[in-house]
């Protein structure tokens, strides 16, 4: 297909990896985002400082540097620390797990801001009313705060997802067989780099289009009672 001599199917297998890494990283980013937002708005000063430090540093460093630092830097750092105690360990990170963790960790910082904004939009009167009803803070969170915040966070989370899925292309530098790496193999084998990379570009455009439609659908679904 597309004059890529059968390599297009290899790129399609890469697409599965891309989507899998993307979805798992997004899930991790959302979990980090919720807890980070709670930490940022908590009354505990230490939690607030840790959460602010996390979002401020992550957003100030390019993804590529963070990816390289986590994939190549952290194992050596741990090995050096153990070597200092005279223990020899060898850490070999799996590129799939490293990719998911790094992307989740980076875009978690963006999700924190999204959820913080969304929690802020839930009227405080409702929280006070819930307290007056004698609800515990955990019950308030999952019955009142979270369901409403989820709705407000859809546009922001969609933006994070669009950035995240495009950032998965970077994982090819740590040798995971996702779209970009398979495309590179196809480009080298067929000597048609433009055709191959354009094919990859079309796949990403496809993901973007589907994501945009999904965003529309979710926004309509979750704002149904508000028109």
């Amino acid at each position: 297909m597309f004059g890529l001599e059968g390599y297009s199917s290899a790129i399609f297998t890469g697409l599965q990896q891309t989507l899998l890494v993307g979805l798992l990283a997004m899930l991790l980013a959302c979990i980090i985002g919720v807890f980070g937002a709670l930490a940022k708005t908590s009354s505990n000063k230490l939690l607030r400082i840790v959460a602010s430090f996390y979002t401020a540093t992550i957003r100030g460093i390019p993804e590529l540097i963070l990816l390289l630092l986590i994939f190549y830097g952290v194992p050596t750092l741990v090995q050096d620390i153990f070597a200092g105690f005279g223990v020899e360990v060898i850490i070999d990170l799996n590129p799939f797990i490293a990719g998911v963790v790094t992307l989740g960790f980076i875009y978690g910082a963006f999700s924190v801001e999204v959820f913080r904004g969304a929690f802020g939009q839930v009227p405080t009167g409702q929280i006070e009313a819930a307290k007056a009803m004698g609800m515990q803070s955990w019950v308030i969170f999952y019955r009142i705060l979270f369901p409403q915040a989820l709705r407000y966070s859809i546009p922001g989370l969609s933006n994070v997802w669009m950035l995240l899925i495009k950032a998965t292309a970077l994982i090819s530098v740590i040798q995971l067989d996702e779209v970009m790496r398979m495309t590179k193999i196809a480009a080298n084998a067929t000597q048609k780099p433009f055709t191959a990379y354009f094919f990859a570009a079309l796949l990403f455009l496809g993901i973007t289009l589907v994501s945009m439609m999904l965003q529309k659908y979710l926004e309509n679904k979750y704002t149904r009672g508000y028109h």
């Binding site: 495009k166 970009m180 480009a187 990859a200 570009a201």
Partner: peptide, 11 residues
Amino acid sequence: RGTPLLVQLFL
């Protein structure tokens, strides 16, 4: 806006 910067650079 719809494709990764890395794809654009390689392209």
